[in-house]
Nucleic acid binder design. Structure first.
Lengths: 104, 104
DNA sequence: CTAAATTTGACAATTATTGTCAATGTGAAA
DNA sequence: TTTCACATTGACAATAATTGTCAAATTTAG
């Protein structure tokens, strides 16, 4: 499940599957074509807003893209860290703890 | 397992358990006392280097502190995100995938 | 009270990120 | 080759974020 792809690569795949040129998509997003090019190749950071707009443009499930987007940011934080996996597990515990203590 | 504490709070606890004033510790770290104060309270970002030095100063297990430090950074990325937990799981998969494909 | 410890806020200096643009590179068509 | 659309690259200034430094204010312990 989306384990071998970055959000940028995924967005490029989606764009190409729709046969849309960067030029058109960047116009819809109202950003420079160079920036979108770099975002797809991971050279510039994506924002949540851009990801959501692209989900809309490509007619693709937004949550799936957001999860990939967030996990990319997480991966960036733990890159090359031996303790990354442990840190992820601790973070999971903490998320669960927060959920539990946040009464609905 | 360290689910209710930030790295800053943990470092403050350690310092207080050793009865060391900020003044002395910040001198050992060669940083301003104000910065260390803010780091302990989460108002300024800690660095890996500072965490390691503090582990040394307090004679505390460095890995445990690093895991907490990294998980803090992860938590920061997914704060308030409904999809945070899913993103963590995907990140775990990806870490495992990377480990597997990186032949030793 | 007083003295040490800590916190707070303001500020300039540094560093990072951003958008913009032009030049360059790539590939397909003919 | 020439042309054309598409994409990439790098340089640059503008903007924003982070940093260290300091002094004043506040809190805490005696």
């Amino acid at each position: 499940m989306s384990t071998e792809t970055t959000i940028g690569e995924k967005l490029r795949e989606l764009r190409e599957s729709k046969e849309l040129p960067l030029r058109k998509v960047s116009a819809l997003l109202d950003i420079d074509v160079a920036i979108l090019s770099k975002m797809e190749r991971g050279e510039r950071k994506l924002t949540k807003g851009i990801v959501l707009k692209l989900a809309e443009i490509y007619g693709h499930n937004a949550d799936e893209l957001l999860v990939l987007f967030l996990s990319d940011k997480i991966m960036y934080e733990i890159q090359d860290e031996d303790l990354g996996e442990k840190a992820l597990k601790v973070a999971e515990q903490r998320v669960k703890y927060l959920k539990a203590s946040k009464k609905k």
